[in-house]
Simulated assay, not measured.
Amino acid sequence: MAQHINKKARFHSVTANRLLDGEPVYLTAANVWSDVITDAAIADGKEEGAKLLEQAQAGVVDQIVVNPYLFDVDGEDGEAKPLSVREQIRAAGPTVRLDLGKQAS
C-alpha cells in the first residue's frame, strides 16, 4: 500500500481511485467518498491517519475504490489542501488543458 506522506507532516487525508470510472476520490468525515478534495476528512497526527486509512478499507471491500492511501495536506483552516504537486494535480485534473477536468468548473 503506497503512502505519500512526510514523516514530519502533521495533517493527512485519504485518497483512492473510484472503481467505476478511475476518478480520484477522498474519504470524508461521514465515511463516504467524494470527488471534491475540500470534503476530505483531515487526520491530525499519525494515529488519526492510521484510523482514517483503516476506515477507507471498507471502500475496498465494498468494491467502491481501489488503492487508498494517506497524503499530506495543509489542514490548519479545517480544509484539506494538498501539499504535494502530485496530489494538487490529482485534485484539479489534467494539466494539459485548463478547460478539462475539475479546474474547468
Rank of each mutant, 00 (worst) to 15 (best):
L83D: 08
I89K: 09
I64D: 07
D72V: 00
G75R: 05
G45T: 00
D74K: 12
V25Q: 04
V61W: 03
D21L: 09
V60L: 06
S84C: 11
A16H: 07
N31G: 04
A43G: 13
G59M: 01
P24E: 15
V32R: 14
L53N: 10
A30S: 13
V36G: 05
D39F: 03
L52K: 00
E48L: 14
T28C: 05
D62F: 10
Y26N: 12
D35W: 11
I37R: 00
L52E: 00
Y26A: 11
V25R: 10
D77Y: 05
K81Y: 13
E54K: 10
D35R: 15
R86S: 07
H12N: 12
F71D: 01
I42V: 08
E87A: 05
Q57T: 10
V60R: 03
E23P: 02
Y69Q: 13
P82A: 07
T15E: 09
L70R: 03
V73Y: 01
N67Q: 12
Y26F: 15
V66R: 11
G22E: 06
I64M: 09
S34D: 06
A56I: 05
R18E: 06
W33H: 08
K46I: 08
L52Q: 04
N17L: 15
R86W: 12
E79P: 02
Y69M: 15
D35Y: 11
G45I: 02
E48R: 14
R86G: 04
Y69H: 15
L19M: 14
K46V: 14
D39W: 10
L83N: 02
F11C: 03
V73I: 10
D62K: 14
G75I: 02
E79L: 13
V32I: 13
V65L: 05
G49K: 00
L52V: 02
